[in-house]
Amino acid sequence: MSWLTRVRNALNYVTKRETPDNLWHKCRGCGTMVFTKELEENLSVCPHCDYHERIGPAARFEHLFDAGSYTVLASPRVTDDPLRFRDSKRYTDRLKAARTQTGEQDAFINAKGRIHGRAAVIGVQDFAFMGGSMGQAVGEAFIAGVEAAIAARAPYIVFTASGGARMQEGILSLMQMPRTTVAIEMLHDAGLPYIVVLTDPTSGGVMAAYAMLGDVQIAEPRATLAFTGRRVIENTIREKLPDDFQTSEYYRDHGLVDMVVSRKELRDSLGQLIGLLCEGKQAA
């Protein structure tokens, strides 16, 4: 044994292999390296630039619902690959990989619980699952969330995060646009509010459907919100678009969303909205 080995062992040297690979996180907003634990304690919001990182359904539910008050609702099952679609990979293989990565069946999860003591049903779109793309499973889960809200006499709050329709399901994916629109009308017929929280990014067919049909439209700060890309629009209208085009703040300033709310304040804001919109409509 060499002297270098003896010294290393004496100092209880930690090898690179033993060092956690998720100790730091590089902020997508300012590029600053932040301790992962510090970021999680700050609700995945950068403490340096206030950039809101993308988070999944579990983190949303834990933050928004009263402690111990919520239950994740089962999602309806649909045919996995109705068109037997294949591009560079089989669609079934892409689904399998996404399910392994996220631990979820598809890109939309519902939960029922209470926010500041008031009943609510929340649906969260998970961008980590194939870009939050909208297919039959997402449509069915959305409708199931509406039905759960009607049964509970509670508002339906949806967090959108999507690249749009799921190309592997073709026209079946696009059919979810009118289906979810009809479901929202069912909620209105029951006298219950539909609240949308737009998160980064929300685009495509989702933006053209249930993402912009809320009775109240909220957005997280600096989220990218768009139907189609900047370059496509600029080439179409032959004009240069503002630098902040397709951001939450631009949408608010031009009347397309009602408010931009920080993640830290979102729970209280939703609680106040439920109190205002559902007064006298919920069972005790």
Rank of each mutant, 00 (worst) to 15 (best):
M1C: 02
T5C: 10
V7R: 06
T19H: 10
P20Q: 08
P20T: 07
H25S: 05
H25Q: 03
C27W: 01
G31P: 02
T32D: 09
V34N: 00
T36H: 09
N42K: 04
C46K: 00
P47H: 07
D50A: 12
Y51Q: 01
E53G: 00
G56F: 09
R60M: 13
L64V: 09
L64Y: 12
S69F: 08
Y70A: 06
T71K: 13
T71G: 02
P76C: 11
D80W: 05
R84S: 14
R86I: 12
D87N: 12
T92H: 06
D93S: 15
R99I: 06
Q101S: 14
F108K: 05
N110R: 05
R114K: 14
R114F: 12
R114V: 01
G117K: 00
A120K: 04
A120I: 09
V124D: 06
A128R: 15
A128S: 13
G132I: 01
Q136C: 02
Y156P: 11
I157E: 08
I157F: 10
F159G: 02
G164N: 06
I171G: 03
L174V: 01
M175T: 02
T180K: 11
A183E: 06
G191C: 08
Y194W: 03
I195D: 01
V196Y: 01
S203R: 14
G204K: 08
A211C: 03
Q217K: 14
Q217A: 12
A219Y: 03
R222T: 10
T224H: 10
G229W: 04
G229H: 11
E234F: 07
N235G: 15
T236G: 09
R238M: 08
K240E: 13
D244F: 04
M259N: 00
R267W: 07
L273G: 08
L273I: 10
A283I: 11
A283Q: 11
